[in-house]
Simulated scan of single mutants.
Amino acid sequence: MKHYDYIFTGVGLAALMTVDQIIKSGKFAGKSILLLDENAKQTNDRTWCFWENGKGSWDKILTQKWKYVLFRNETFSRKLDLEPYEYKMVRGIDFYEKILKSISLQPNITFLNQKVIGYNKSAGKVVVKTDSANYSCQKLFNSIYDQIQVLEQKKYPLLQQHFIGWTIKTEIPVFDPNVATFMDFSVPQKGNTRFMYVLPVSNTEAIVEYTLFSKDLLPEAEYGEAISNYLSGLGIADYKILEKERGAIPMTSYKFWENNTKNIIHIGSAGGWTKASTGFTFKNAGKLSKQLVTFLQEKNNFRGFHQKSRFWFYDLLLLDILAGKNELGSKIFSAMFKKSKPALILRFLDGETTFWEDLKVIWQCPKGLFIKALLRRIF
């Protein structure tokens, strides 16, 4: 059984960002590292978006960026100037190629396309079993999400941000490539939190995505029907579907980090790195991967890595509300975006506001809903 210093089970966003930070640090050249995933990461299987102030490390692989986004519901529409931020988009394949190229140049890092079956602690080491071999390591970074552990507990609700997106190309110019549609709640809610998300990359091409924050997924045909109806409502009838993307992102304040041990850490969605209230992962993973690699240089026990903040509790209250009354999502997000300064909202969602700034954002939301949710949590 071959032994490694570090093994990554699952090679998604969080794992690749962490390995990228390991390489950039220049401090781990003497460590043997194994990456295990059944997927070779050679297809464009997803799209990530994030907001950022100024130039960033991913600018060279951006597909598009926007200074303006649109928020809309059935009664009002607001074009938001994100200054000083820009909303940026990265295609999965471009991200994979950038990181995997860097990994291929490192003699101490190996990437094997094998399916991980499980892992366990044995004699002070961690043993990982795949469909074709066993490996041991000193430190395990696991990003394979286990929904069962969340479903088996009742303290923290679990919703899904689930969606299907179409990349379409139209015959005539119909999109404004300078404005992304961040949330369009004007679509029928049907007892859920449902919205459209539009990312134009030119005046004839865009990703159009039907997204829900709810407990249960829909039949596949229902997503497509909603997108078709939305495009028809925009007067778009003649178009070609270039690509389709489907996903389901867990939204929960479950304390994943309590499952960490001295030598095993859960990262990505498996570690609670997804922003629970919005499903945004890319920027959060970037922050946490840097922190993790710094931590790894200084400390030896993964139990001490996670630091809980008040923003975790804010997310919990929102999810409590949506778990009980899922149809209220439009009302809550509309109240937040109707009058608040866009830059303040984005800093709040990033967990970078002061407590008094938190109150400015929260005060815009339906107060009764959050007070009731707070009281339920306290008592």
Rank of each mutant, 00 (worst) to 15 (best):
292 L>K: 07
230 Y>L: 02
133 A>Y: 04
303 R>G: 01
40 A>S: 15
240 K>I: 14
16 L>N: 05
374 L>T: 14
110 T>A: 12
229 N>M: 08
234 L>T: 02
374 L>D: 01
60 K>C: 10
106 Q>F: 00
272 G>K: 04
270 A>H: 11
301 N>G: 02
37 D>Q: 05
338 K>L: 07
154 K>N: 14
69 V>P: 08
186 S>F: 08
366 P>R: 06
83 E>A: 14
110 T>Q: 13
3 H>Q: 10
174 V>L: 12
365 C>I: 12
209 E>M: 05
10 G>W: 03
105 L>G: 02
249 I>S: 02
253 S>R: 00
324 G>P: 02
301 N>Q: 01
346 L>V: 08
289 S>L: 09
243 E>A: 12
96 Y>E: 05
144 I>P: 00
107 P>W: 02
209 E>R: 02
168 I>K: 08
349 L>T: 03
111 F>R: 04
74 E>V: 13
101 K>N: 14
342 P>H: 07
278 T>D: 07
279 G>E: 03
266 H>G: 07
351 G>S: 04
51 W>K: 03
139 K>E: 09
51 W>H: 03
19 V>A: 06
275 K>Y: 00
204 T>A: 04
219 P>T: 01
355 F>Q: 06
302 F>T: 00
312 W>Y: 14
353 T>M: 05
123 A>F: 11
94 D>C: 10
178 N>P: 10
199 L>G: 06
255 K>Y: 04
187 V>C: 11
147 Q>P: 02
325 K>I: 00
296 L>M: 14
356 W>I: 09
75 T>H: 13
115 K>C: 08
213 F>W: 02
182 F>L: 15
6 Y>F: 14
374 L>M: 13
277 S>Q: 10
92 G>P: 12
355 F>R: 12
210 Y>P: 07
362 I>Q: 11
8 F>I: 07
14 A>R: 03
330 S>P: 11
44 N>W: 01
314 Y>H: 15
161 Q>V: 04
360 K>V: 12
333 F>Q: 09
197 Y>P: 08
145 Y>S: 05
225 E>P: 06
185 F>Y: 14
3 H>E: 10
216 D>N: 15
367 K>L: 12
331 K>D: 11
185 F>I: 08
81 D>Q: 09
164 I>D: 11
167 T>Q: 15
326 N>Q: 11
285 A>W: 00
32 S>L: 01
236 I>N: 03
131 D>V: 05
288 L>D: 03
246 R>T: 13
195 F>M: 00
214 S>L: 01
298 E>I: 07
274 T>Y: 06
77 S>M: 12
265 I>P: 10
248 A>G: 11
304 G>I: 00
136 S>Q: 00
310 R>P: 00
267 I>V: 15
327 E>N: 12
35 L>E: 00
216 D>E: 15
75 T>W: 07
6 Y>A: 07
354 T>S: 15
298 E>M: 12
139 K>H: 12
311 F>G: 05
116 V>F: 10
13 L>C: 15
201 V>I: 14
138 Q>P: 04
112 L>T: 08
322 L>R: 05
15 A>Q: 06
110 T>I: 13
301 N>D: 15
64 Q>D: 10
10 G>C: 04
333 F>W: 14
196 M>Y: 01
120 N>Y: 13
